[in-house]
């Protein structure tokens, strides 16, 4: 079982990202689950979304999760929420930030000693898609860190998932995914 927790703000596309990732993984024969905590959250409120991936049917519906990966797609959530909650010793973090890894850990000591990767998904999204929607770049970074799929296969799959969007937006998303794949460190 692979488990992922997304930290996001409502409106930044974490649910779409989690469902898109589940969709891609499902086509490779694995079982998937994607869900989120909503409450009555308004746009901009901190929220979490979740992925589970397994070789057999996923029957666990508890919301509690000790994630293998934590994705933070809004830079401020590292400070205003606890992104390390219920983590395991070997949980990997992919965090959206303009800071270097050292600056990030210094500014949030809770991240000390954790396996952290950084990438500026907000900047990439703004420069490619033209809007601060950091969900697809995060998935590009995840492909690099996890080595889950070949990036070309992943991009081809995402083209199919995004097929209702205008071609220009799809193309921009592909560039965003590739850039995050190349830039995450």
């Amino acid at each position: 079982m692979l488990e992922i927790r997304w930290h996001s703000r409502a409106g930044q596309g974490a649910v779409t990202g989690a469902k898109g990732l589940a969709d891609v993984i499902s086509t490779t024969g694995k079982h998937v689950q994607a869900f989120a905590f909503y409450g009555s959250a308004k746009r901009g409120a901190a929220m979490t979304a979740y992925n589970r991936v397994d070789d057999k049917t996923i029957m666990n519906h508890e919301k509690y999760m000790e994630p293998d990966f934590v994705f933070v797609i809004d830079p401020a959530l590292v400070y205003t929420t606890d992104v390390t909650i219920n983590a395991k010793e070997n949980t990997k973090y992919i965090i959206t930030t303009h800071l270097t890894k050292e600056e990030l850990v210094e500014s949030q000591p809770k991240l000390e000693g954790k396996e952290i990767y950084t990438v500026d998904c907000i900047k990439i999204a703004q420069e490619t898609i033209g809007r601060p929607i950091p969900n697809t770049p995060m998935l590009g970074a995840f492909m690099k860190i996890s080595g889950m799929y070949d990036i070309e296969f992943f991009k081809d799959s995402m083209v199919r998932i995004l097929d209702k969007l205008p071609q220009k937006i799809i193309d921009a998303n592909m560039i965003a995914i590739q850039r995050a794949y190349d830039e995450v460190k």
Binding site: A18, K19, A22, S26, Q33, A34, F35, A36, I58, H61
Partner: peptide, 12 residues
């Protein structure tokens, strides 16, 4: 179906 736990949970 269970609100959110089924209604908003994507699965195969």
């Amino acid at each position: 179906q269970d609100g959110f736990m089924t209604s908003h949970t994507a699965q195969g």
